[in-house]
Simulated assay, not measured.
Amino acid sequence: MTSQTIPVALGDRSYDVVIEDDLLSRAGTILASLSRGRRMVVVTDENLAGHLATLQGSLSTAGIDSEAIVLTPGEGSKSWATLESLTDRLLDLGVERGDHVVALGGGVIGDLVGFAAAILKRGCRFVQIPTTLLAQVDSSVGGKTAINSRAGKNLIGAFHQPSLVLIDPATLDTLPGRQVAAGYAEVVKYGLIDDPAFFAWCEANGAALLAGDPTARAHAIAHSVAAKARIVAADERETKDVRALLNLGHTFAHALEAETGFSDRLLHGEAVAAGMALAFGFSAARGHCPPEDAARVAAHLRSVGLPDGLAACGIDASGKTLVAHMAHDKKMDAGTLPFLLATGIGETYLDRSVALADVAAFLDR
């Protein structure tokens, strides 16, 4: 694919998202202007040894020394313990406020490194190099950084924008199929939020994308990044109910993840898929969304192997139990939890009048 650069327009915090196959092998040339002639620290996980070698080789070719910090993969690393260990290691390596730490990995690495950068010496810089579809189309763009706590997912964090995002779609070639499918849920989300034509594109091309078709993959990544960049530029810190649209399905999803212990039993993207189907089902149950639209969403998710509800996630918890998880949601405001609901495909809205008892009853049904 040809190189594409998508700007995220945030004033003095603006940055570019560069998308290009095999970008990892020439990342050193791009990062040279950010290195300040100093060693760059790359944070990654144990599953990415091959990508790490490519990146460090590229940095070396560009005359940049590098040091790698390799973490345990998985959602469990988004923890206080790992954050403490990571920040101590970054301090031991002499990272300065003007340095750029490189996050090489999926959403877990990006969220963790971004949060570490936000708090290290009251804020240093970082670069996102996402290697999963979910991170490429969603979590690497927009500056949301966080770790999990016992109370729930992403409850400890900060807004901290990267200086640059480098997306190499070729890194998806080594990703397990289940991980690619989980990331695809976030692609579908952009169609469901406000772009019915893109959802129709997903219905026609989703299977090809998951099978590795490079044209479909490139289009999905670029379209998703552009959509998120537009929304983030309009509402960086989610204060205008615009960026909140990106949370479609996530209130349900985080409850499902909490119920499964934030484990590989249910990947984040799988939970988001089920959450979006539940959000449309709940909207239909309340009479706000045509039932056929809710059925269409669920059918497409099933067609690509993603879960469309509690049973498909292997969850038999009561509605009361799942709603108890939601009570810790970071979006809770004055005792009310806003929900992203829909009047149709591509027509979502924020509803602040939802009673959690009604959600629990719906989940029990």
Rank of each mutant, 00 (worst) to 15 (best):
T5L: 06
S3Y: 08
A295D: 13
A312S: 10
A68R: 10
G269E: 01
R150L: 15
P290S: 02
N154C: 11
S25C: 12
A295E: 15
T145P: 13
S77Y: 08
L278R: 01
K331C: 09
T215C: 04
T29K: 15
I147T: 11
G335L: 09
G76K: 13
L23Y: 09
G261M: 10
A255K: 00
A220K: 02
R36Q: 15
L175M: 14
G143D: 05
G143E: 12
L306M: 03
S77P: 08
S66L: 09
I315E: 02
A244P: 09
G105A: 12
A218E: 15
G143H: 12
G287E: 00
D293F: 02
H300L: 03
D138Y: 09
W80T: 15
S85L: 14
A182Y: 06
G106V: 06
R36P: 07
P73N: 03
D21Q: 15
R230S: 15
D351A: 04
A197R: 13
Y190N: 10
T174Q: 11
V102W: 02
E259I: 07
L245S: 14
L337C: 13
V18K: 13
G346C: 01
H300S: 08
A277G: 01
A361F: 10
R38L: 03
A294Q: 00
D316R: 14
P130N: 06
L166E: 09
A271C: 05
